[in-house]
């Protein structure tokens, strides 16, 4: 049972990881304290839900649509609002994005009403059995997609020209501008990319969890915990942070009781902040 709990934790953790990875780019790298992250995850869930009910599109196909739509949404939000305050104090980032989150939540309620919506997939609650270990198919698919997204993001940030520009801005925006990088455009791109990944996370969550307008609230704090735990600015760190939180949550739920999964998550988070504030894989920070 211990092994099964670990496996379940890793599968759940992959979902957490992909929720965290989007924020890793936005907050970890670009230092935009985005409190609306969970609401963008919610947007991805609603997009997937709509495509599934209107066109019967399989959610794992609509991940691409979520990605594109959330990418555009993210860039628009950046251009219209966040761009204007990005040099201001972090307090204003938090307030502005919390306001945007409130707008998104209620926009969703105006369009979709307050009902908790789910989609029924034939494989949502099916398991594969490997020598006594049960692996849920929906979780397994999400795990694999999360792994692919993590790999692509890592490649994008480390190997491409834009990725290098993003890293340069995250280290020193002024110097990056001097060396000919179009800071606004690249930051907008990076923000859009982070939101796009949040949208994909929403898609992967929908076969497992319901969506309603307030579903995003829980994901924002979770995403911050994962990013800080994994280490600022490290995609790989966020992936590992997500897996770790997943395992901790499952172990706590199984051995202590469901409500202890939150208790332990917060306690671990506070301990990491105190004793290893740079996170598991992070660089040291100011």
């Amino acid at each position: 049972m211990f092994l099964q709990t670990i496996v379940n934790g890793l599968l759940l953790g992959a979902l957490y990881a992909i929720v965290g990875m989007g924020l890793s780019i936005v907050f970890g790298t670009m230092r935009i304290v985005n409190f609306a992250h969970g609401q963008f995850v919610m947007a991805g869930m609603y997009i997937t839900y709509t495509l599934f009910t209107a066109f019967g599109l399989d959610p794992y196909v609509s991940a691409l649509v979520s990605f594109v739509l959330c990418f555009l949404l993210g860039m628009a939000v950046y251009r219209v609002a966040i761009h204007r305050i990005i040099r201001g104090p972090e307090m204003n980032h938090i307030l502005l994005t919390a306001g945007i989150g409130l707008m998104l939540t209620n926009l969703a309620q105006m369009v979709y009403n307050t009902n908790q919506l789910t989609i029924n997939l034939s494989y949502s609650h099916r398991d594969l059995v490997f020598g006594g270990l049960r692996i849920n198919i929906a979780y397994l698919i999400s795990f694999l997609i999360a792994a692919v997204v993590a790999a692509l993001l890592f490649w994008f940030i480390m190997k491409t020209e834009t990725g290098r520009a993003i890293r340069a801005i995250s280290q020193n925006a002024a110097a990056a501008a001097l060396s000919g990088i179009h800071v606004t455009r690249v930051t907008m791109l990076a923000f859009g990319l982070g939101i796009a990944v949040a949208g994909v996370a929403g898609t992967l969550l929908l076969p497992i969890h319901y969506v309603d307008p307030s579903v995003g609230d829980a994901f924002s704090l979770l995403a911050f915990i994962i990013v800080v735990l994994g280490g600022m600015g490290s995609i790989l760190g966020s992936a590992i942070g997500g897996l770790l939180i997943g395992v901790i949550a499952q172990l706590a739920s199984y051995y202590l009781g469901q409500s202890y999964s939150d208790v332990l998550t917060y306690v671990v988070f506070l301990l990491v902040l105190l004793f290893k504030p740079s996170g598991l894989l992070g660089r040291s920070r100011v």
């Binding site: 049972m1 099964q4 709990t5 379940n8 759940l12 979902l15 969550l205 497992i208 969890h209 579903v215 609230d217 829980a218 499952q250 739920s253 199984y254 009781g257 469901q258 409500s259 999964s261 939150d262």
Partner: peptide, 14 residues
Amino acid sequence: SYSTKDLDYKAMLQ
């Protein structure tokens, strides 16, 4: 006891 916001109940059901 559980929260309706939890993603997964399998550990509890176990």
